[in-house]
């Protein structure tokens, strides 16, 4: 099991004006090959106009166990949503 190629995550912009979106991953020895392979594996049917590849090892992600700590505080801050504020029906433009 020598020389396992690093894992790369593949992101594709499906059309101009949209953000790149994660579509999958692949192994390749270097960034150039990863890009070439991503083109063959993930864009055989005009799926994209641009590809990003990122070494999976370089991604820092939140841990599922931290979900409550990270995201629950937002639940008590409903005033961040415009619907929190009742507005008089007769006033327009709000």
């Amino acid at each position: 099991m020598k020389n396992q190629w690093p894992l790369w995550e593949v992101f594709i912009r499906s059309q101009h004006g949209l953000a790149h979106r994660h579509v999958g991953s692949l192994h390749a020895p270097d960034a150039t090959m990863a890009l070439n392979n991503a083109r063959d594996v993930y864009t055989r049917r005009n799926e994209g106009v641009s590809i990003w590849i990122v070494k999976a090892a370089d991604i820092t992600a939140s841990h599922p166990d931290d979900k409550a700590e990270l995201f629950d505080p937002a639940n008590s801050k409903v005033y961040r949503h415009p619907t929190f504020f009742p507005m008089p029906d007769e006033v327009k433009g709000l």
């Binding site: 894992l7 995550e9 991953s25 999976a56 991604i59 820092t60 992600a61 841990h63 599922p64």
Partner: peptide, 12 residues
């Protein structure tokens, strides 16, 4: 994405 599945496995 599998960037850090090792973390998920180690925490058991």
């Amino acid at each position: 994405m599998h960037a850090q599945n090792n973390v998920g496995m180690a925490d058991t």
